[in-house]
Structures are given as structure tokens and as C-alpha cells.
Design a protein around this nucleic acid. Sequence first.
DNA 1: TTGTACGCGTTATCAG
DNA 2: CTGATAACGCGTACAA
Lengths: 340, 340
Amino acid sequence: MVSIKEVAKLAGVSIATVSRYINNPDQVKDATREKVQTAITQTGYAPNTLARNFRRGKSGIIFVVLPSVGDPFFEGVMHGIMQVAEELHYTIFIRETQFNTLTADDYSNMIFSKQADGIILLASVCPFTAPLERPGGNKQQPIIISCESVTPELSHFPSVRIDNIAASKEATEYLISLGHSNIGFIYGSHVSTLTLDRERGFRRAMKEAKMPVADGWVVEGGLNLDGARKATRKLLNHPQRPTAIFCANDEMAMGTLHEIKSAKLRVPEDISVLGFDDIRYAEILDPPLTTVAQPAEEIGERTMHRLCKAIEGRDIGDEVEIVPHKLVVRRSTSPLKKSK
Amino acid sequence: MVSIKEVAKLAGVSIATVSRYINNPDQVKDATREKVQTAITQTGYAPNTLARNFRRGKSGIIFVVLPSVGDPFFEGVMHGIMQVAEELHYTIFIRETQFNTLTADDYSNMIFSKQADGIILLASVCPFTAPLERPGGNKQQPIIISCESVTPELSHFPSVRIDNIAASKEATEYLISLGHSNIGFIYGSHVSTLTLDRERGFRRAMKEAKMPVADGWVVEGGLNLDGARKATRKLLNHPQRPTAIFCANDEMAMGTLHEIKSAKLRVPEDISVLGFDDIRYAEILDPPLTTVAQPAEEIGERTMHRLCKAIEGRDIGDEVEIVPHKLVVRRSTSPLKKSK
DNA sequence: TTGTACGCGTTATCAG
DNA sequence: CTGATAACGCGTACAA
């Protein structure tokens, strides 16, 4: 592997000059510049990133941690993130945490061990434990948890997201306003505080409307198609079958939609379906899905800006930054048909 | 930032011992081990990855480059990749190349500058130029291009994929066997050799069956929903309206399905639809989509194994490794209804 | 404008 | 089993 030394030797200059040529070309005389350049092309030299980062003490890398590539929701958020990253000359690396569950400490360590300058955790279901106590002073690590509603123990991490409880409550109230009172809810998983919050919003709306939530109306959908389909079948077989089903995300709503139609029931005539996220498929489903939209790109942008502030050592607090959500009404929901 | 030195001092040992404790604990006496461990917890020390990688001359990182997170197809491939990566102790980083188009040289440089030990390009539409000529000897860089059918200039990169032409030809023959002769084809984009190959397979089947492909039956779908919807509208308005539409991937097929139904036509009674990839949504679409399945996980596994061989310096050739595809017949295709 | 020389934090190679 | 020490490749203060 060719290093800066060989380039220097070939160009007949010192390594310092080569280094300068690369990082501060203006400080090098024209004639020298040429010599160095030819030596570089001749050797095919490329600066060793490992050495450079080591020397500089920073990698210029930001990790974005998300549960799965292949999840349509994150596309928009990534857009926002990458746009800002480009401006600010950071490189984004995505880490997928499919099943391997890293702890908050692991992430903290990534920063501490200089693997990355900052980390964005996107709705990453990970078994968060108590915050890491590091003797060196634990405050203000450049880590942001976005989209996800964090548990109390983690509230010291800054965060950008919608108000999941409020959004879910509003959506439920919309169903109620359509005349529905038997409403099923499919949440994600017990470790997904995000969908748990959405469940909370659902229950709150029901309670305020003085509508009971029957046993078995709230089921787990596992955040995936299969899980949602099973959950839906449970709901369809329930003695008091819901007239509307609210799914904690659109992915699950897709499974629900399919399962209802497989049972020869119609959406929304027999059962209304409501999703969450407004992924790109929502509007081309059959019927197009009523859902809660998140300003994905904005979440990404805000998150990056805030993270970069933290990287620069500025204080960004540990508050949750709430962005607005919006109910998008399409055709998968309709007024309750009075069947009596 | 606390370094190994301070840990050594606090523990009353040399830095070498601390290093050994971390990398080869068995070579350290029990008593010493404890001393070191307490010093580590006390200081909150974490090895500086930058320095470590620098010293080792390798990062243990493999880049996976893909066009977009949010693309359901890659999930399976990533599964395969990550499983092998875990076994072999590599860390996977995903880079998204949404619009920013890196050249083959850029990738080559990533290897050369030690940013990564190896690179997997997954169906990444990037403006490949002539192979990089590097004085140091350009042969056998640890770069693999998977899923994508590469252009001739790039055939020196090893590759793992299905035979897109053959698969597409077979799928077309299936449509023909159902009695269809007016078949529309929606390809991805002019820079996506992958979908161009699928088009080639389509045309080959049509030609062998002596069926003409009318002007305007082959349209560009842009690899996304909107593009596919527009393309579908063109097809529906064509004077010789196709009785079947073959989409170069499932994402586009989803758009096509929706657009056909929006035009009050039925699938498959009026128009059959055929997709490609067998993403997880294929079976829950309405109607469930007939499509060509790729062994995604297998592609991922094979790719990683081959790449690791290359990283170890072994010769892996530059052949294309072909994995089997399979036509999955569901309900979006049916025999041509004789309407005369 | 250029060159010399040091140090970044590790790991690896020796001797002890 | 442990300690001293030499690398690794680069950036930069300082001297020339």
C-alpha cells in the first residue's frame, strides 16, 4: 500500500509538502504542486483514511440506526438527514438492528470510542437500560433518538418526533366521530414504546368518549405483515367484532386490509381501517388508506441540525422537539353503517 | 478523552498489559485482570477505534451500497449478508445512494483509502465508467456487484445474481402460454441495466413466439410508484391496449395494479399483471401478485462469503454467480378471456 | 515556501 | 506472565 512517503520521495519533496498539497493546496507553490500531483497519479496514492481520522481525532461519520432497511417509512426521514449531512460534510452510515439488540451503552461506546461523531437512533427498538454513567462526565453526548417515544429512563437523550399520544387520540376521535364505538387496536410490540404510546392515545380517546374497550380488542401485531394478519383474524373472530380497526402503523394496516378482504368483508363498508405513518403505499392501497402522516423529511432535517450542534459541543438540551402530525382521510374509513 | 495510558497508570501495570487484557485476556493473570478491569470501569475507558483500526490497518467494515433504504426488496438480501457478517466478525455499514451518484472510482478509493475492507454494491444504479487503472495493480479488489446485471465494462467485478434475462423470458412465456399476445412491459430506467435485462428477456420471448411488440408497449416506469402509474396510464390509453402488463419490479407492479383498478378495470379479468422480485407485499396485494422470486437471502450469503474470500486475498475470479429464480403464480394473472 | 521532527493511541515484537 | 519500545501514516508547530 503506497503511503505519503513514497509520493514525497518520487516528487522530490518532504511528506509535509505532500500533506499540505492535499489539505491546504494554497500554501504550496505552483511548480511544487504539479510535481506532487504527478507523483500522486503515478503512484495511485490515496490518503489512508484510517490514519487521517486517527490523527484528526474525528471520523466525520454519523450513524443512523434503524430497525430495518426495507421499511418504507424511513425513506423520508433519511432524505432529510442526508440533505443536511451533505451540506455539513458528514458521511452517513446506516446500521440495521434487525434482531441484534444493542443497548444504549453500546451506542454510547460508539461515540466514546470514536467510531462515529454522532448517532441518530430512529425508532430503534432496543432494550434500553439505565443511562450510562461514565466517570468522564456523561452529559450531552451527540446522540438523538428520533421518531421513537423514549422511556423515562432515557429522557435525557434529546429527541425529535410527533406527539404520538395526541396523534393517536385524534385519529381515534375521528373514528368515534364516524359513529364507531367497537374499535380494535393493533399495536406493535411490548418493546416498542412508540406503538405503546399510540395505544395509550387510543385508550385515552375511548375513555374520554366513555366507550369501553373490550377484552381482546387490543392485540399485538408484531410490527409486520404476518403479525398484523394474525391479529386481525383474532379481531374478526371476536364475539364483539369491531367495526373499525386502528393499526399502529401502515405496514400492519396493509396486513389488516388483506385479511379483512380475505374474510369476504368489505373495507370500509363492513370494517373501517386506520393506519399510521402515511407511507408511500398508503394512497395506492385498495381502498386507499386513511392514516396519520408524519413530516418525515422535517424530522430528519431537524434531527441532523440538532445533532450537529451537539457535535460542535454546543448545548442542545434534552428536550423532545415535537413536530406536527396530520390526519389524512382517504377511503378506508367511513361512517358506521347502522345495521339494525 | 481517557486513553490506555491512564488506565495502565491507575492499574499499576504497563500499557501492553492493558492492551492484552482487552485483546487476549487469557494471557493475563487473574489478579492483574481484576486490577485492570477496575481501572477500566473507574475511568470509563473505551479503546479508541480510530487508533486501533489505524494500527491494525483494517477497519473490519464492509460497506453495502444500495439505492434506497425503504426498498422492500433488499431486506432479504441484507438478512443473508448480516448473518454471514456476524459469523465472520465484520461490521456492516449501509450507504444509501439515493441520488448522489458515486462512480466506480469512488468505490475503489474507499477500499484503497482503507475506509472499508470490502464493498457490496446492491443493484446500485451508478454511472459506471471504465474500470479504474491503478498503478499498484488493480486486480481483485474486494468489491462485488450483486443483484444488478453489470455492463460489459464492469464485467471484471465479481457478481452474484439471478439470470434476469432468462427469468424475464420465462415469465413472459408464461403470459404467452395463458393466451396473451398483447403484452405491455414497464421497465425501470435507462441506467438500470437490471431492468434493461428484464426487458431484453421479455423481447426475446416475444420474438421467439413470433409476436410483435407494438410501439408504445414498452414504457419507462422510473422504478417507483408514480412512474409506474404514469406508464400504466399510457398503456391503458394505447390504441392496442395490452391484455397483460409485465412490470420489471414489484414496486412498479403495485402502482400498475392501482392504476388499472382506478380505471375501473379488473385484474386479472381485464388485464393480467406480472411483477418481479416477490417482495413481502406481493402476496397481500389485491389480487395477490404473480411474480418472479429471487432467493434474496441466498444472494446475500453467497455475496458475503465470496467477498470475504477476496478480503483475505484469495482469488475469487470475476465470474457472475447465478442463483436460481422461480416464477410464483398467484392471482393477478389469468388466461386471456376470449372477448369476441 | 518548504523541511524536520514529534505525537496521536494502539498493537505487536521482543526480552526479561 | 509482564514491560519496554518500535512501528502504523498522517498533520502540524517550528525552524530554516
